[in-house]
Design a protein around this nucleic acid. Structure first.
Length: 205
DNA sequence: CATGGGATTGACT
DNA sequence: GTCAATCCCATGC
C-alpha cells in the first residue's frame, strides 16, 4: 500500500469523495478503512470556504492532498482532505472508518471497546486516531496523518449516496457517500437496498 | 472588543 | 425524542 499523492486529490471534490471509500487513514499505530465521506466546495454555503480566504480557511485554498482539521462545537476535531487545484476551496470530510489497526489505543482514547462505536462518526474517528488541530494543514502523504490507496476490490464496491448530515445550508445536495452495509457508518444510516424476498434479511455486517 | 454560531456527541426524558 | 458541553473564529460595532 502506498500513500496517495497530491494528484489524487486534484480533481472534482465529489469524485474524490467516492474514490476515498476503501482507502486507509493512519496516524501512528492506529488506522482504519474509510467507509463514509462528504464533499464540500466553495461554491455552496455549507462549505467553510464559501466565505472566502480567512485564517481559518487558508488550508482549504492551499494545495490538494493536505489535511484541513477544525474544531466543531468546541469539542470535536474533524478531519478533511483538501481537494481540487490550489486556489479552489474544497475538501472531503472523512465521516467514518472501519477500525483496522491499533484497536486497543482507539478503545482507550474513545472510552469504549465496541468496535462499532470507535470510528462511526467524524468526531469519533479523529478522537480514536488521535487527530487534533495540530494536524491542520499537514501533508497527507508525508506527514503524521496519512491516507493510503484502497485495495482494488473497493473500486467496484457498492456505495450509497444521500444528502449531507448535520448542516443547515445546501441541505439537498447528495454529496454524502457511504460504503453499502458497513456497521461503522455514522447515524442516520443511509437507505438500504431492499433484499430479495426469501433472503435472511440481516443487513449489517 | 463582544457576540453568535456551528460539517457532533453522549446523556437523559 | 430533547438538550447541553465548549471553543475557535467570523462578523460587526
Amino acid at each position: 500500500m502506498k500513500p496517495l499523492a497530491g494528484g489524487f486529490y486534484a480533481r472534482p471534490v465529489l469524485e474524490v469523495a467516492h474514490a476515498l471509500i476503501g482507502c486507509v487513514v493512519s496516524n501512528g499505530d492506529t488506522a482504519g478503512v474509510i467507509v463514509e465521506t462528504e464533499a464540500y466546495h466553495q461554491s455552496e454555503p455549507a462549505c467553510h470556504a464559501f466565505v472566502g480566504l480567512t485564517p481559518r480557511t487558508r488550508p482549504l485554498f492551499g494545495p490538494p492532498g493536505r489535511a484541513y482539521v477544525y474544531r466543531s462545537y468546541g469539542i470535536h476535531s474533524l478531519l478533511n482532505a483538501v481537494c481540487e487545484p490550489a486556489g479552489v476551496g474544497a475538501a472531503v470530510l472523512i465521516r467514518a472508518l472501519e477500525p483496522l489497526h491499533g484497536l486497543e489505543a482507539m478503545s482507550e482514547r474513545r472510552g469504549t471497546d465496541d468496535p462499532d462505536q470507535l470510528c462511526s462518526g467524524p468526531g469519533k474517528l479523529a478522537q480514536a486516531l488521535g487527530v487534533t488541530l495540530e494536524h491542520d494543514d499537514t501533508d497527507l502523504a508525508s506527514g503524521p496523518v496519512r491516507i493510503w490507496a484502497a485495495e482494488p476490490r473497493w473500486a467496484s464496491a457498492p456505495r450509497v449516496v444521500g444528502p449531507r448530515i448535520g448542516i443547515t445550508k445546501a441541505v439537498d445536495l447528495p454529496w454524502r457517500v457511504c460504503a453499502l452495509g458497513s456497521r461503522s457508518v455514522s447515524r442516520p444510516w443511509p437507505p438500504e437496498v431492499h433484499e430479495p424476498l426469501g433472503s435472511a434479511g440481516s443487513r449489517r455486517r
